[in-house]
Design a binder for these strands. Structure first.
Lengths: 216, 216
DNA sequence: AATTTTTGTTAGACTAATCTAACATTTTAG
DNA sequence: CTAAAATGTTAGATTAGTCTAACAAAAATT
């Protein structure tokens, strides 16, 4: 598979987990590649049995397409974990590099990284690392936004990996694993005042709270 | 620069250190890319000021071409070192993976690897790692082949990185840094009987001895 | 010095991945 | 339910990197 094909599969995989149906336009926007190009690549991948495609119908990954995409995402997330844990990168710096390294052709390279990291189950953003069959374990975390006053939860994952969001979380001194207690929710704008690890108080806008995924 | 362009520069750099003059045919053979393709790529790189090219004349890297090539080789060798020292690969397994990772676009990635390795000066094969300006320090090692009876030398580098040669050296239990004493040279075929680290005796064919680079 | 061989160049075709322009279908809205 | 808008498809052009075939120059050989 070419690097380009891998990127199409990965994008379709991500869109499929976020939306019920995925259109050519969705895929086109997500890759910032024009629709006719996407259209022809989709046909090509359909020919390879990775995408099931019928004219004017929503796009779907086949079983083998899902597996292939899962394996690429596995590589991506393993690499992100490696970059953070062994090369000292911040969680906001790793995406771009992992995008490149995920395409390296060497099973053993990724096996060794997996081993070096002691077989991690999540990446630095709390997203699950697919297993060696490309299978992802679904996480049913809740958005902090949905929590009520006085509830105590643990910060497990982020809903966005946008640079600006991750940097903000850093600035707020929040880390995965932190215990968050909801102290007060402003009725007007849903801003939350929270207590982190029983020590520091922070105010979180609704938009931030919506991207903080927690376990109760 | 594209991956392809980087590979042309690297190949030309290597050929230039091995030979006084490098022809289009040499480069073509070394890349296993047909001459007309090489010809047009050489023109392209000449247009970018990386190769100085005149019709029917030998090929030469410009200063900036040399620097660019040196920096790619630096990345390659840093990665090889990392693969051996931190991921447990054998020195015969790292070339192919390094060929891919050397093209990653991220200065910081390689800086961190350099730091993690504590700024190594040579790669796992004893080849020098170019500095941050792509400058290579010339090593004037001698071939073991050229040594005389009773001479004691240190194994510093290999003259070939062919898989089969590296595996053979492993099988002979030879490692970089070993002390080699020449016990006897067969007049007939120049086979050498050597003593390694004062302990194990080995017989080395002339071809092997020619690819063992030593410091006296 | 002339001829042959080797090396180098030019011209033109092919593939993968992209694009724009034009056309077609489906969905949405009045 | 038709017209407009949104989405999807087809056709054809473009670029990077490759190739083969044909031709040209330089080097080697006789």
């Amino acid at each position: 598979m070419t690097l380009t094909e891998e990127n199409y599969l990965k994008a379709l995989f991500h869109l499929s987990t976020e939306n019920e149906e995925v259109s050519v336009l969705d895929l086109s926007k997500s890759l910032t590649i024009k629709m006719p190009t996407v259209n022809s690549m989709v046909k090509k991948l359909s020919g390879k049995g990775l995408i099931s495609y019928e004219k004017y119908k929503p796009l779907m990954l086949t079983q083998s397409g899902k597996r292939a995409a899962g394996l690429i995402i596995r590589k991506h997330r393993l690499v992100e974990m490696f970059l953070v844990q062994h090369l000292g990168f911040g969680w906001d710096e790793v995406h771009e590099i992992a995008e490149q390294i995920e395409h390296i052709k060497s099973q053993r390279f990724f096996d060794r990284i997996d081993q070096l990291l002691d077989f991690p189950k999540v990446d630095p953003h709390g997203s699950p690392i697919p297993d060696i069959n490309g299978e992802v374990v679904f996480q049913n975390y809740k958005k902090l936004e949905e929590c009520v006053e006085n509830q105590m939860v643990m910060f497990m994952s982020v809903g966005s990996s946008q640079d600006s969001f991750l940097k903000l979380i850093d600035k707020l001194n929040l880390k995965l694993g932190d215990i968050i207690k909801v102290l007060e929710i402003q009725e007007f704008d849903k801003t939350m005042r929270v207590l982190v690890n029983e020590t520091s108080e922070q105010n979180l806008s609704q938009m931030v709270a919506a991207n903080i995924l927690v376990k109760t």
